[in-house]
């Protein structure tokens, strides 16, 4: 079953004296319960694609279709974007506003424990480390009980160790909850560790796709990844084209 289908998605921005196509015709079908990673250079259109799917921007042309229609979308951003006036617990509960209080408390408590934040539920975001804050942002997305979770380089600003830990946690959450996840990154290894499918974006288009047949948990340093990484690297290092229209 397809959870998300994009058809001929096109987005252009007007700059002084010219127009730039951030997306130049993206077609994509994402199966329900799959983890798809999108990898590409900075400025290739990855974030724009996610923002359009998340309803934060409107496409210039093309269609975004969800199954079921009106599916719940959650997003984890590059930075945690926690509400600074709310505690960690309240930040997670914020997105469960229509639920009964008991259910909110139970769900929030469960995800806080799962993410190792049980001891920090009364802390404010300013009291958390970068990794903990990003964990809380992930917990918020999980509490929303979304059909699709969009992740826009959520681990990009973290140190290598925290990043590795969170990658493992994310895989564990994916395997446990079987959510549909679209994960954007500029790190090829991260794309290979996480994704069942890795899509390469360049110049506002999906230019290559690789299926990753290996079971979780994965170690991108292993031999089987060599060819996949080399292929992705070749796709990414081809020179970018001008996208003026």
């Amino acid at each position: 079953m397809t959870a998300l289908a994009l058809k001929g998605l096109y987005k252009e921005y007007r700059l002084p004296g010219r127009q730039v196509a951030a997306l130049a015709g993206v077609d994509l079908a994402v199966a329900a319960g799959s983890l798809v990673t999108i990898v590409g250079r900075s400025g290739c259109g990855k974030t724009t694609l996610l923002r359009i799917i998340g309803g934060l921007e409107k496409q210039s042309a093309g269609e975004v279709a969800f199954d079921p229609p009106g599916a719940r979308i959650a997003m984890v951003f590059q930075e945690p974007r926690l509400m600074p006036w709310l505690t960690v617990e309240q930040n997670l509960a914020l997105v469960m506003r229509d639920q009964p209080p008991d259910e909110i408390k139970r769900t929030v408590g469960r995800y806080l424990d799962m993410l190792g934040l049980g001891g920090f539920k009364a802390a404010y975001p300013s009291q958390l480390s970068g990794g903990m804050a990003q964990r809380a942002a992930l917990g918020r997305a999980l509490c929303y009980n979304a059909d699709i979770i969009l992740m826009d380089e959520p681990l990009g600003a973290l140190d290598a160790f925290t990043r590795r830990n969170l990658q493992e946690e994310l895989v564990a959450i994916f395997l446990k909850h079987n959510k549909t996840i679209l994960f954007v990154t500029h790190d090829i290894d991260e794309a290979l560790i996480l994704g069942q499918r890795v899509l390469v974006m360049a110049d506002g288009r999906i230019t290559a796709e690789v299926a990753v047949p290996f079971p979780y948990p994965r170690d991108a340093a292993g031999e089987p990844f060599y060819k996949l990484r080399a292929g992705l690297l070749a796709s990414l290092t081809s020179p970018p084209a001008q996208r003026g229209v």
């Binding site: 998340g54 309803g55 934060l56 719940r72 979308i73 959650a74 997003m75 951003f77 930075e79 974007r81 509400m83 600074p84 006036w85 709310l86 914020l94 997105v95 506003r97 918020r140 929303y144 969009l150």
Partner: peptide, 24 residues
Amino acid sequence: RLIEVGQVFGFTPRQRFLRIILPA
């Protein structure tokens, strides 16, 4: 960026004002 969080997580304009803009 905080208002966008409300947008993505389906807040109505009223909820965005009361739960994000006003406390901020």
